[in-house]
């Protein structure tokens, strides 16, 4: 007995906690690797204490059990699950934030790729405009009016591309 909680109850909470961990892990990854389902039994073997430690996730704290000695195990478990969910979400958020800055615009690589992107988008707009105008001139025998018109439009498209990159470097929807 520790603060009114029996040892089997603690053990039960531990195993449910471990199950919750693994099932959460499984659910997070399941839609992404559906064909790994068959390997689930091997992937998600019953959690041993070593595994949980290796995941660097905390076991139920003594204080949690001590705080509400008379309440249901369920309530304590829910509280722990909620805490776990928050920490997992925070972890996800942190990792996605990290991914954002890893190759973002703050590094030399990011700046370089952005610069080269601007260059190619600009040149590609002009080249495509010139090619369309030139080909239309050949077909309609209006040389060189359409070449000039489409070269101008292509330059505008090049500037427009650059403007869009400047407004939203890699964010959602360049339009």
């Amino acid at each position: 007995m520790i603060d009114g909680v029996t040892l089997p109850e603690i053990a039960n909470a531990h195993s449910q906690y471990a199950k919750a961990l693994t099932s959460r892990y499984f659910i997070r990854n399941a839609p992404l690797w559906p064909n790994l389902d068959t390997r689930a039994p091997r992937l998600y073997k019953p959690a041993q204490s070593g595994d949980v430690e290796a995941l660097a996730l905390s076991a139920p704290r003594e204080s949690d059990l001590a705080e509400q000695p008379n309440q249901d195990d369920d309530a304590a478990l829910h509280a722990r699950l909620a805490r776990l969910s928050t920490s997992l979400d925070a972890q996800d958020q942190a990792s996605s934030d990290k991914a954002k800055t890893d190759l973002g615009n703050n590094t030399l690589g990011g700046a370089m790729s952005l610069g080269f992107r601007v260059l190619t988008e600009f040149v590609a707009g002009i080249v495509v405009g010139a090619l369309i105008g030139w080909q239309l001139d050949v077909w309609l025998k209006t040389s060189p009016i359409l070449l000039i018109v489409f070269l101008t439009l292509g330059t505008a498209a090049g500037f427009w591309n650059v403007y869009r990159i400047a407004v939203k470097p890699t964010g959602r929807g360049p339009l």
């Binding site: 080269f116 992107r117 040149v123 590609a124 707009g125 080249v127 495509v128 292509g154 498209a157």
Partner: peptide
């Protein structure tokens, strides 16, 4: 009409800028 033309040109330019960037680098 001008905006649509510019948008079409910039859409057509996409595969070119995408491929030229990788190739040229």
């Amino acid at each position: 009409p001008f905006i649509v033309l510019i948008e079409v040109i910039s859409f057509v330019a996409r595969p070119i800028s995408l491929s030229v960037r990788l190739f040229a680098n």
